[in-house]
Amino acid sequence: MNMLTDAAVEETLQPLYKPAASKMTGKDVTVHYGEKQALFGVNLEVPEKQVMALIGPSGCGKSTFLRCLNRMNDTIDICRVGGSILLDGEDIYDPRIDVVELRARVGMVFQKPNPFPKSIYENVAYGPRIHGLAWKKSEFDEVVETSLQKAGLFNEVKDRLHEPGTGLSGGQQQRLCIARAIAVSPEVILMDEPCSALDPIATAKVEELIDELRQNYTIVIVTHSMQQAARVSQRTAMFHLGNLVEEGPTEKMFTNPDDKRTQDYITGRFG
């Protein structure tokens, strides 16, 4: 409720201003996969140092939008992106932008835990190494330790840092992937259904972690779980058939949505 009033106040002062400063902004984003259009002009602002959840039924374009935010869609040959996406006011689809730099600032955690088949240490140290963020062994040690600590994994793996990351449990692997993303000190972390392959206990740990990470990072999370969206996010955006249906504070979205489709989806009556 507090947020709502804030928003109301802000809006009277400056119509385009949102309660928190916007970290990333999608303007009229369209995506085509070959002939098929997957996103139809999405306008969405991602607020800084908050968690934004993207929800919607399968195939609604939420993952597509998420992957546009760090240009992971570039790897798909037939994918074309229109409109513009700004990171701190700079268009990330500008031809002068290097995706490597972009992805260092906008990290990503995937649906299925995908640690490299290397040691835990190497998994975390890889990002800093290729970006030249650390040079000496001690610097690497430090960045590995702090990243693992931030991901809440350090105490569980500190005695076996040099064992393969693929030997960890699913939940640990996913937290390792989060640690790997954190290690390059990104500003935004994108998470594509990070808990869908995890059991409830591991899910709870990851959710707790997401809540902590919000202090330092802007997080965009795609999820199929309404409860998860409600638990971890401050703002929620609802997608349907490639359109952004509605976006607003999570509390409002789950209690009093403006759109009937949102209402139907979150109450499970969709489809």
Partner: peptide, 12 residues
């Protein structure tokens, strides 16, 4: 997923 993981941390 391995390629994505590498690209995701900013590898070329």
């Amino acid at each position: 997923s391995i390629r994505e993981a590498a690209l995701g941390v900013g590898a070329s």
